[in-house]
Design a protein around this nucleic acid. Structure first.
Length: 257
DNA sequence: ATGGTCGATGGTCGA
């Protein structure tokens, strides 16, 4: 069994102790982290090495920042996507044992009339190009990330509350559908079809306890990976207790020897 | 009830 995970930690500096104890408990083989909010120099590679993980980080400090941790090796790392707009630290890729892996932090979009929303759609276009190219060379491709897209209405606590907002708009949902059409599968949704299963809850207003969240953190695998999928979970316990990220980790188990 | 909470900051902004 090979376990892969994705987690937007909302500052690795603020979350390092929680991340390290979670790694010990959940023991994933490959982890995609988002929003490290660290420079390259500040990334705690030694702490992860002591926990048994090689790592690659693409950081810019303050905002963004993505990393991959792996117990099964890190080779051919790549920082950023081909033709990626924006020049921010939102994508890092590496080959981890049998998998080609990307950790992704898709732009939020902010509002439908914002330049940042247009940026989000352009960025998703660059991602589609990368996926197409990787699938030509790799059978097993996994994207782990904060996509900032709720793919359908099951993935939001109240579709009415999000009418006219980002994360649920048709263009971004279609952009994600386009990535699925290239030959990729939402691994969690392949295992669980019901609504109300979320990976993110706003810090404000007690959203977590009111079950007011969204499922925007995704593990997306190529068909070869999906065919080896054994289980998938959202580790919502990690949203509890003192000092949580506003996102919970998502994990999937692959039957790869 | 028009705010609420975090984490980057060191002004407020972004989520």
């Amino acid at each position: 069994m090979l376990t892969v995970a994705t987690w937007n930690v909302n500052s690795l500096k603020a979350r390092l102790d929680r991340v390290l104890s979670w790694l010990e408990r959940a023991a994933p083989d490959v982890v995609c982290l988002q929003e490290t909010k660290l420079t390259e120099a500040a990334f705690p590679a030694a702490a992860f090495a002591a926990a048994g993980y090689e790592s690659v980080h693409f950081g810019q400090g303050q905002w963004n920042g993505v990393a991959i941790l792996s117990k099964v090796g890190i080779v051919e790392p790549v920082r950023g996507l081909e033709d990626e707009p924006g020049g921010e630290a939102r994508a890092v890729g590496a080959t981890c044992g049998p998998l080609r892996v990307y950790s992704l932090y898709i732009p939020n979009g902010r509002s439908l009339d914002s330049d940042h929303y247009r940026y989000k759609l352009e960025w998703l276009g660059a991602l589609a190009g990368t996926v197409r190219k990787e699938l030509a060379n790799q059978e097993r491709l996994v994207l782990g990330g904060d996509f900032n897209i709720a793919f359908d209405d099951r993935d939001v606590w109240s579709p009415a509350a999000f009418e006219g907002a980002t994360h649920v708009s048709l263009p971004e949902r279609e952009a994600l559908a386009g990535i699925y059409q290239l030959g990729m599968v939402d691994l969690f949704r392949a295992q669980h079809q019901e609504d109300g299963l979320f990976s993110w809850w706003d810090y404000r207003g007690g959203s977590f306890h009111k079950r007011q969240g969204m499922r925007i953190d995704l593990l997306i695998g190529s068909h070869a990976v999906a065919n080896e999928l054994s289980w998938a979970v959202i580790d919502r316990n990690e949203r509890k207790g003192p000092g949580p990220s506003d996102h919970a980790p998502v994990l999937a188990g692959l039957e790869i020897e």
